[in-house]
Write a protein that binds this DNA or RNA. Sequence first.
DNA 1: GGTGTTCTGGACGGCATGGTCAAGAACTCC
DNA 2: GGAGTTCTTGACCATGCCGTCCAGAACACC
Lengths: 198, 198
Amino acid sequence: MPRPREFDEDRVVLAVRDEFWDKGYAATSMDDLLRVSGLGKGSLYGAFGDKHRLFLRVLRDYDDANLRGLRERLDAAPRGVDVVREFVLGVAGDPTGAAARRGCLLANSTAELATSTPDVAAEARRSYDAITAILTEALARAQREGDVDPGADPAGIARAVLAAQLGVMALGRTGMDVAELDAVARSALTRLLPTPSR
Amino acid sequence: MPRPREFDEDRVVLAVRDEFWDKGYAATSMDDLLRVSGLGKGSLYGAFGDKHRLFLRVLRDYDDANLRGLRERLDAAPRGVDVVREFVLGVAGDPTGAAARRGCLLANSTAELATSTPDVAAEARRSYDAITAILTEALARAQREGDVDPGADPAGIARAVLAAQLGVMALGRTGMDVAELDAVARSALTRLLPTPSR
DNA sequence: GGTGTTCTGGACGGCATGGTCAAGAACTCC
DNA sequence: GGAGTTCTTGACCATGCCGTCCAGAACACC
């Protein structure tokens, strides 16, 4: 009996996400969000609550999608080590450098907001823990597949790989040349994932 | 002949820096800055220009101080490799975790502003290039001192070390337990700086 | 077609924002 | 002590901000 919604919730979340991603949380105004979403104030507030709650919703959806993607890539990958390598190399994957300059919404948000907004820090921990778990699984598989030194600790490598990826991402955000960024990623990977001598 | 200033410029820059550091650029209001600096509007604007110019001044001073510190540590260090290790381990150096949660002003600012503010991205490139140069020098020295594989490329390791440090810092900002953060840093270092087999 | 429910769009309010400006104060040099 | 210069204080402005609210619209069910 109620009047049905005229907008698709997921579409709105994506549009709003891009705005937050490009401008940062504090620099994004509600007017910006209304513009990119195409909604009126009543609709946006009614469906998502205030700016802070909307942002958290956007962030959670973003993280969940990323985690799902990583998991799917691992399940589909012929070799576990490929997923790990792609996880780091992907940062410099866009030859135009636009993706590298944009960085990761979660990483950007954590850097901007972690001090003042515990919710965001907690979300980041949750997400990074989950990524570490998947990477650990990938590395354990890589050991069985003979691509990683079987004597190493997969969880230890996983954390180092995650740190390396975050670091490459931070460098990418400075606008560093993509070729150079790719070199940084490869340099880190070469040392973090030494091929077992066979 | 002119009336002398009643404030110390460097003290103001430091006070303002802490405010930007804790709240981020956009979330810091001019009123905040007036409060922590103790200045009136006319004085602050007269001495530093608007918010954006003041911020850039703060960021440059911060970077310069960091670079000077790194350089001095290298000049004073008994072994080149110690500087490199400390560069990464220092992120988890404060046992309370407060420093790790706070992160680095430059890294935080780059994540928040790089897209919208080319000045900040350029400053970050300048700073990271300079850090890479010092780390490269430290690693070359470490090779001569027998602490790093002489066959490796110092510049390549330096970039990977910088990425690892930035990554550990990003994780520290999430509020990750300090002991765990320290473990990540050590895990990365162990693999990036293998002791030469002698 | 009437009724109850939710959705929509925008008007509105109150406040915080960044930045300007002017009037007077503090100092040095002559 | 007068003149010239810069510094200080805070009033002031225009705008932008977030969030509330309400009158009307759109639907499902009876």
